[in-house]
Design a protein around this nucleic acid. Structure first.
Lengths: 348, 348
DNA sequence: AAAAAACTCTAAAACGTTTTAGAGTTGTTA
DNA sequence: TAACAACTCTAAAACGTTTTAGAGTTTTTT
């Protein structure tokens, strides 16, 4: 029982009317085009009966719009991005948009390829948390007149629409909390590649807090952990500090994966948390809630980030389509929340 | 500098050749159609220069194939599905397929809608972990001649292609391990809705283990936890058991979310693991590795599941397209692995 | 009774590909 | 030198929509 897909023409033919009419009616433009109620009724009825499904390709080809957007993140199995993707998907489908999710694996070459693919698929827009250091990929997207908004990660010297979190504030607040608890030697771990704005900003917030305090900042305690070799390199760092009797009393970790590795190392080295070492982490993932002790962390409003990102992108898309001049830049910065748990001890 | 997108005709025109020729060359069919090397060279060169990108909609419209597949899971922010989606995406893009990921939220109505949307988008195939009890949605997909493969969850009485894990074996092995450690009163927690095959099968494996042992099976220790109210209902169950002095010595939890809730309840009620209660869980998620004590669990080979699912679907798609009779059913069942950690104590 | 307005509908083009069937040369064979 | 093969290329249709510009009736106005 191979039955061909039913098209507009099939309906038109059976009803003895034109495709134009059927198209109008089915798109809800029957009234405004003065199609009689009776005819509209007949069209709807038959369409239903035949289980008519418009061909999206024909449609997209004709109107030059795919109703699809792309989301590029480093790794969708990272809980932070998993949640984000989840909410982005929600808001997209609420707005009748399709979503294509892509993983860059923190690899510039791969991200460039992804962008090419997305542009070939003629997505209407891209939400992108980029791993690339320069901005030629953004230029490339713009050249194709495709809208985009940066999320999570931005370029300070390249004006664009973005939705991010106030990383400087979040990191400063976390570090200040550590200071308030009496810590003096506080280390900061960020993850490679070092140019990513989140890591730069969180380090900045950390530094600000220390500079504002009576303690003095020492770059010795800032380590960029290579993401390919987190466990080993953290292990080496802690061992060196320990051997040289310069162990910090607290660590601010600017990334959830770093924190996970750090926790494993501490377990392995039998460094007790928080009695021997206090830890505070950016990103609040499930593991932190369940860890023993539960980890104090900086919560990002993931759902709002996602919502704002989609909202912003759709705004930009519609303005671009309408050919309005887009002189206004949408730049959203959301607040973080410090979640106090038990991985930080008082120090004196 | 609004420059229109460049099309085949643009290239053809500038080169003074036909669209046909350009199309052939660009699709690598130059040789087999006897286009001279020189001409091919000119085409490639100009296409490159103009940064030509084929219009996928026109292409899909013409050849009736979208090169897109859909993935339906209950919630992509659940670590198990996040990983799965991640790998599915990998294998899809390796095969030049696009992926649309959808969340059903364990809601039948929503899943039906998702399927309708996917069919409208004319995906070439669907990988689906379904929440729906009956099989009319599968019928609907088949009616539209769209290929699909079930993953994770199946219908025992509805023949279809699938890729799953041997849940019965995994659950039996886990329960037998509990028995070997001397446990006699072993409970089993599954999650609602109760009809989902994974839950049914895991319960079955649990029951088999007990029936095979010297212990006797008691349905009293099998609880289906409603997913909307996991914490509270687990709390009530444990409290009742405790009050009535019928606390099991071990619990086999057939779902990672249930386990998480169970762990929280135990913490709240100060039930020590594993000394007071041993726990073993299906699914091995990050939290379990990091928990204190680390949770013994049944590991599913997520990457293989994903790989096989994509592989199978693509096979089915190509056979369907070639109009070959598909009398053979692809049914893949993968093995689980019991990961021994520290949440199970010996009991005597 | 002619002109205007209102109402209902349609023909045909366009979007950018792929594919079918075959056209026009040039060279080769009998 | 006629027939044939080989080589290189093309016209046009088709996929299924949306949209533009306007056609054909009937009703209303003057």
């Amino acid at each position: 029982m191979k039955h061909k897909k039913v098209s507009l023409s099939d309906i038109a033919e059976k009803l003895g009317v034109s495709k134009t009419l059927v198209s109008m009616v089915l798109n809800g433009k029957g009234d405004e085009n003065g199609i009689s109620k009776a005819t509209q009724e007949r069209v709807f009825k038959l369409a239903q009966e035949l289980n008519y499904k418009p061909n999206q390709f024909a449609r997209s080809l004709r109107i030059g719009k795919s109703n699809t957007i792309g989301l590029i993140v480093s790794d969708i199995s990272n809980p932070f991005y998993a949640k984000m993707a989840r909410y982005v998907e929600d808001y997209c489908s609420q707005n009748q948009y399709n979503l294509i999710i892509c993983n860059s694996d923190e690899n510039s070459t791969k991200e460039h390829k992804i962008i090419d693919t997305l542009l070939e698929k003629q997505v209407d827009g891209i939400i992108i948390s980029s791993t690339i250091e320069d901005t030629e990929h953004l230029q490339k997207i713009q050249n194709e007149q495709v809208s985009y908004v940066l999320v999570d990660r931005i370029y300070s010297s390249y004006p664009s629409h973005y939705v991010v979190v106030d990383n400087v504030f979040g990191a400063r607040e976390a570090t200040q909390y550590l200071l308030e608890q009496g810590h003096k030697r506080i280390a900061c771990f960020t993850i490679s590649p070092a140019h990513i704005s989140t890591q730069v900003e969180r380090f900045l917030g950390y530094k600000q807090a220390i500079d504002l305090s009576t303690e003095s900042f020492d770059d010795f305690y800032h380590k960029v952990i290579p993401r390919e070799n987190m466990y080993k390199s953290i292990y080496n760092i802690l061992r060196d500090w320990s051997n040289n009797k310069v162990m910090p009393t607290a660590i601010f970790s600017a990334n959830n994966q770093i924190t996970l590795a750090l926790l494993e190392v501490c377990k392995e080295m039998k460094i007790l948390i928080p009695s021997k070492l206090s830890i505070i982490s950016f990103d609040d993932i499930d593991v932190f809630r369940f860890y023993n002790p539960p980890i104090t962390s900086v919560l990002q409003p993931i759902e709002s980030i996602a919502q704002k990102a989609v909202e912003t992108l759709l705004k930009v898309i519609s303005k671009t389509k309408a050919n309005e001049e887009l002189n206004e830049l949408y730049q959203v910065k959301l607040q973080t929340n410090l979640i106090l748990r038990e991985s930080v001890a008082k120090y004196n």
